[in-house]
Design a protein around this nucleic acid. Sequence first.
RNA 1: GGAGAGUUGGCAGAGUGGUCGAAUGCGGCGGUCUUGAAAACCGUUGAGCCGAAAGGUUCCGGGGGUUCGAAUCCCUCACUCUCCGCCA
Length: 429
Amino acid sequence: MLDPKKIRENFDEINSILNKRNFIIDKKKFESIDNNRKNIIADTESLQNKKNTISKEIGILKSKGEETTLQTESVEQINLELKEKQSLLIKAEDEYNDFLLNIPNILHKSVPHGKSDIDNKIIKYSNDENLEKMTKNTFVDHSEIGKLLNLYDQDIAVKMSSSRFSLLFGSFAQLHRALGSFMIDEHINNHGYTEVNVPLIVNSDSLLGTGQLPKFKDDLFELKNKKNFFLIPTAEVPLTNIFQNKIFDEDELPTKYTSLSYCFRSEAGSYGKDTKGLIRQHQFEKVELVNAVMPSKSDEALDSLLNCAEKILQLLDLPYRKVLLCSGDTGFSSYITYDLEVWMPSQNSYREISSCSNFGDFQARRLNSKYKDKSSKKKQFIHTLNGSGLAVGRTLAAIIENYQNKDGDIEIPDILRPYMNNMKLIKRY
RNA sequence: GGAGAGUUGGCAGAGUGGUCGAAUGCGGCGGUCUUGAAAACCGUUGAGCCGAAAGGUUCCGGGGGUUCGAAUCCCUCACUCUCCGCCA
């Protein structure tokens, strides 16, 4: 949520930033909603003031044993008016909140202007040499290799569940599990993260706090039997909600959490895309990194977060590139987002494997997460960040494809061997 | 699943219909004293919203009700604790 005060005071500036992401605040509508709310608050409060004053008077009169009929009647009259005003106020507040909750975040000044992913700015490539070497091989899609090796199956999953689910068997399942452990270990051992095991079901308030609701309900799985329950689309939601309604001391910041969790996404609107393999599943595992930081530190925190995610790709020696998302491709809640994209030989393209964002105070405002400033002693909103470090299913796919040798065997990356009983190869036969 | 007890400010803990945003203690902050610190003493110390300010208003787990007036009474939901049962 943006600061309503800032919208009032710097309307044109904010609106022109939002225009870059193809969003326009209707100025007249905002002003009317804003003023309407203020007026009704003023009216309601003055009625309440009258009511309180007279009620106190009644208390005093009664203690003296004096007559109070006149006062009682006048409060009764006020109560009638008040009731009317209060129902108007509820409506006005709802309208106000709804309006604000549907405005996306402003953008960092370095976010490039653009409509869609084609306008994203490529920051760097990991190593072109490696890519060249890899592309000489004959590549088979990871799901094809998997089927060939009897380690991957989509057909059974469709029968027991639906499309966009799959099963991993044997070494694939083990490698998948190894990847999750390896990533988490890297973050907790070398980057100062605290591991958290989180609920996979959250309520709507949490999703409102991180920004998935109210706008993106269709992307979520909502539980039918119990009201107000949703499967998490990412561990960002539970991890960031650790900070809800919290006031940090300065020395508690930064707080850095990581979690290996399942994620559930409905993938509404992606029909026909990535129907094969592990790229786009309803259920997948992801290692998530979340930071709560002082506002002045969020730019550097994003760099450090990105480095943590990149480090995983480097340790796995996977070819990747780093991309700065353009205004039109940057997510609703994000202030600035970098994606890491891994090379997928079968698709002859780079695919997103991590997305790292600085949210500024956008989420903190929704979550009511503050810190107490030591010098000014004031409570201010913190900044929140998150990133994938990495998406486990996609990493598995990338390894299967990039580490396939000419015989069709899959080499296990050195760093994962300790997690795989020192297995070196997943053999074709 | 059954029976009972709770939920009050950073924490502990009073308050059972009127001047209570809330006693008291601890903690925090500021000061006196001290070479410095501790102790002692004095003062101060919740948050949101409206307002330029003065000030007003709301908040005692959430929601609703009774009343001129609710932290206090009633209903309801959530959570916590104790006992019993069941269970990974």
